[in-house]
Each structure stands twice: as structure tokens, then as C-alpha cells.
Design a protein around this nucleic acid. Structure first.
Lengths: 139, 139
DNA sequence: TCTTGACTTAGAGCGCGCTCCAACTTCTAC
DNA sequence: GTAGAAGTTGGAGCGCGCTCTAAGTCAAGA
């Protein structure tokens, strides 16, 4: 008997994966904790996660790729809530690419704004640094 | 009207401070809420805040400048905890400029690292964006 | 058979940075 | 003098994103 429940539709777009990973292997591969993986799933951030016969999660390579992307979205400040929306679009399958694109383009603009803000405020820090350097130099 | 907010510019000289501001005026000038100003004071982020005879806070131009700096440090991700350390140094007075400089230089490095991280992860977002654009174009 | 360890769940806990509330006092304008 | 705006305090509450705990299931190896 097959050990995994295969979905009728592959939410990622393609098929066939290779050996699935356990949660700890997937956590290792994605660079996060098993706690976080379970949390992300509960939070609706995974388009799908299949289980084996005894209820254990099995992560495909695509699942891990998705986790790595989620990680990057998080590191660029995308809130869980919006990643959930994105995951829902991916789960819904093909046909909503325009929406997905719009979400990512908005996020791109936010990243650029964030970089600009950091660089602007960096100037104030640099100004202060120079002030202290001068004060120290004139002793 | 001698009581307007005049930038009589006193960037750390011993010049006149001018009329002190109430908490709501200072909040307005610094671009934050009065709640936040009180919170920052309680959290130890203010080197000093004087009170008038009846216990109301009076903010000098220097206090507001400090708040603006704190705001920039926050926006560049410096935790409250570390700003508290910095405020303690300022409160302690002259003689610890080397420590203050070190704190700011560490923060500077963290900002640069953050910018680099954002830019690196931005590439993944751009990659995805291009993917969706191509998918949409070939329809 | 027993132990070990990896997995499961629901739910609690936590650190951060505010943000607000209740109850009270003080200031300002009329 | 009085209304009401604005100030004060201690402490509660909140949204976020994890992070961990407890109690249980299950399979493999000594």
C-alpha cells in the first residue's frame, strides 16, 4: 500500500518529488526549528503538507523550497498574515498569478522603502559617530 | 510670538534652550505619542526629564532632539534595552565617549548587515516576480 | 519485553514594544 | 468659580512571532 496520501492537485504546479523528509530533516534543510514548521502549518502558511499512514508529516523537496521562500519573506519583514494570503493563492492552484504577482510587487516596494529608511537613518548614526570621534580626537 | 518652536539651533552647545515644551508639544515635535514618551521615560531611555512645580514634564529642545535620535535608533532596529544603555552613558556625563562610540559603531555594523540581508533576500523576491511575469506573458 | 527516541496534539508562555485605561490632579478659559 | 482639557500614576492589555510543555502514540533496537 502506498505510504503517502497524494493530493489530486499539486498546489506547486508540477509533480513527482523523490524521497520525502521527516519534520526534523525538513527543519534542518530549511534552517528552522521543528516547532516553527508546525507553527507555520497551523498558521496556514503551508499550501499543503502530506502525512504518512501514521499521521507523521512528510516534506517533499517543494515543501522545503517553499519553507526557504517563506523564510526569506519573513526576513524581509512580510507578516505571517500576508504570507498566509500568498499560501492560500498557491493552494488554490493556477489562475491567480496576477494576484500573486501583485502581492510580491507590493512587498518588493516595501523592501525598497525599508532599505531607504535604514540608509536615511544610518546618516544620523554616522553623524553621531563622527561627533564622538572628533570629541575623542581633541583630547 | 516669542513662544513658537524656533529652531534656535543648539546642537550641543551651551546656548539657551528656550521655552520648554509640554509632553503633548514634545510628542508632536518628535513625531510620537504622549504614551510613547512616558513609556520611554519609564523604560529608562531619557537621560533626564525635568518637571515643573506641579509635577508636569517639561521638555527642552535637547530632550526633543534626543527623542528624535531615539526614534531613528528604533527605526534602525536598536532594541529598547540597548538604547537604555546608551541613555545611561549620556546620563553619566562626559568621559565615556569611547563607550558611546563603540555602541554606535556596533549598531552601524548591524544596520549595514540588515541592509545587505534585505538586498540579498530581495533577489529571491525579484526572481519570483519574474517567474510570475513570464507565466502571465505566455498566456 | 523494555527502553529510547521521534513523532503527534492542544495549549501555555514569553519577549518585545507599545497602547490604553482608570482614577486622580492641575491648568486654562470663560 | 467652574467646566473641560490636559496632565499624572500604576498597571492591564495587545499583536506579533515564535518557543516550549505535557501527555500521548508508535516503531525500532538491545
Amino acid at each position: 500500500m502506498a505510504t503517502t496520501l497524494q493530493p489530486a492537485v499539486d498546489p506547486y504546479g508540477d509533480a513527482d518529488e523523490g524521497e520525502p523528509l521527516t519534520i526534523s530533516e525538513a527543519a534542518e534543510a530549511a534552517g528552522m526549528s521543528v516547532h516553527t514548521l508546525r507553527y507555520y502549518e497551523r498558521a496556514g502558511l503551508m499550501p499543503r503538507v502530506t502525512r504518512n499512514g501514521s499521521g507523521h508529516r512528510r516534506y517533499t523537496r517543494r515543501d522545503v523550497d517553499w519553507l526557504i521562500l517563506v523564510n526569506k519573506l519573513r526576513k524581509t519583514g512580510m507578516p505571517i498574515r500576508r504570507i498566509r494570503e500568498y499560501a492560500a493563492m498557491v493552494r488554490a492552484g493556477e489562475g491567480n498569478e496576477a494576484e500573486r504577482l501583485e502581492l510580491l510587487e507590493r512587498h518588493r516596494a516595501e523592501i525598497l522603502a525599508r532599505v531607504a529608511e535604514l540608509q536615511a537613518n544610518l546618516e544620523a548614526v554616522d553623524y553621531k559617530i563622527n561627533l564622538y570621534r572628533e570629541r575623542l580626537a581633541s583630547r
